[in-house]
Design a protein around this nucleic acid. Sequence first.
DNA 1: TTTTGAGTTGTTCGA
DNA 2: GTCGAACAACTCAAA
Length: 483
Amino acid sequence: MPTKNERDPVMVLFRHDLRLSDNLALCAATEKNRPIVTAFILDEQSEGVRPLGGARRWWLHHSLSALTADLQKRGLKLVLRRGPMAETVTALAEEAGASTVYWNRRYDPAEIAADTDMKAALRERDLETESFSGHLLHEPWRLKTGSGGPYRVFTPFWRALVEAVHPRPPADRPENLTPFEGKVATDTLEDWHLLPTKPDWAKGLRDTWTPGETGAQRRLTEFLQGRGDGYKARRDVMGEAGTSGLSPHLAHGEITPFQIWQALDGDTDLAGEDARTFRKEIGWREFCWHLLFHNPKFATENFNRDFDAFPWQRDDKALRAWQRGQTGYPVVDAAMRQLWQTGWMHNRARMIVASFLVKDLGLHWRQGEEWFWDTLVDADPASNPANWQWVAGSGADAAPFFRIFNPVLQGEKFDPKGNYVRGFVPEIEALPDKHLHQPWKAPAEMLDKAGIKLGDTYPRPMVDHKAARERALEAYKSVKKAG
DNA sequence: TTTTGAGTTGTTCGA
DNA sequence: GTCGAACAACTCAAA
């Protein structure tokens, strides 16, 4: 049993909280007035933990690099370790002689289990531990319906949350951190090979994003001062920067919902309905985490078990056409290419391509969920499955099955000037607006003039939407009967 | 326990 | 071009 000493270092873990401000674990460590060991643990080995997708690995590399620099300015080193959470942290604590370990809580079921193990292992060795909030406005186990169960419908969930919870004010960035002067081994970021090499597909990501706390704060400020005006309507226009773009920063904990909440209370361009709508989006994130907490297999199993009988198709060629943005439906292709190029997709576009995969192509929502998991910089274990299931109809509070997005109508409605399609599908940019969303209906001479050869320079539609819609409705009927 | 009101984001058809 | 109704009943949450 180690002897505790007043000067034993305090260890602070970083995981999905790559920030210094509103970091309660770091604040608590500072208050101890003892040397601080900061460590990031990459755990892809604890049971059930889902390895990060490629886009998030890219982001993680740069976010860790930013965090390392921020800590360095305050004299602290970030120790990098890789391995199962409990064993890795226990070993590091011992090497550093730490008698206290603090962390901010995680909410993925497998990560909760890993952290529970870690806590037990540390306490067994007589270390002091404490965990803190930060990732979510509310603890998913706390909010219950009148009859004691978890909420399954968003609106009552949100009402209860808004009424019940006054989010705490965010904590300031701690000053005067006492660095740990001892020596412990650390991996280097390069050791982890988080960046793509062969090929390097990250150029579009580099051009689009600034991972790290500074980038997150800048994005929030820009959004609240100018870009956020008219949010409620503008957020649906795919060719405009009408959304906050905060999702990857939130996913990595470079900013907290508490900080966003407080910023919305201040002087911003987001007023009235705009502000309420944006807060609601934060609420959806909370709701998804709440659902995942109560349904640990949300990412792989139908929330509504009736859908276990659904006759999903298997068609790898069709899946690949969807992934590559070669479906022949311009708005779908623009969206899939935006995802591939920038690691992100506009919210409305996500619904359109999801509806297309699940309903027009009849492929399982899990195949879409997996692709998004790998390609999205904001891939989130709660929101990703919840929203895929929502579109598929198997999820909580799901869209009725007869809501099948028409990719042409959606394009005309939410990309009326064609900025979005032209930005990502340049081979048809010369088409006039009227035919941009359905090139196959354009007269031959117009296609000629625009330099388009259907089936050659741009694909013909891979399915006929009307017929596909009928097939989807039939398939859903068969589930209904079975259920 | 029973009842009642309501439920993110849509599309198509026919007047 | 625009508008309202139908789509198909179902489950949840709260009174």
